[in-house]
């Protein structure tokens, strides 16, 4: 499943990043890498924008970006 399919409070393990460069490098360098635990802390009402936690950072990203991150629900 993709990151945007996780509900608030749910976590997953990152499996693959489908984003193209240079976004892919950006995501990787922010700690969004294979094998890491990622948690959806919050999303806006319309699920447009997500607040996720990876490692010790909070990152805001849009649904479009979240769609490009493959996760396995924990």
């Amino acid at each position: 499943m993709r990151l945007n399919e996780l509900k608030i409070g749910e976590s997953g393990i990152i499996k693959k990043i489908y984003a193209k460069e240079p976004l892919k490098s950006k995501l990787l360098s922010m700690g969004i890498t294979r094998g890491e635990k990622i948690k959806v802390l919050k999303h806006t009402l319309a699920k447009n924008t997500f607040d996720i936690e990876v490692g010790n950072s909070n990152i805001a990203l849009r649904e479009e970006e979240a769609k490009q991150i493959e996760v396995e629900k924990m």
Partner: peptide, 9 residues
């Protein structure tokens, strides 16, 4: 553009 932004503590 994609929107990816760190939310600092």
């Amino acid at each position: 553009e994609p929107f990816v932004m760190e939310l600092p503590k």
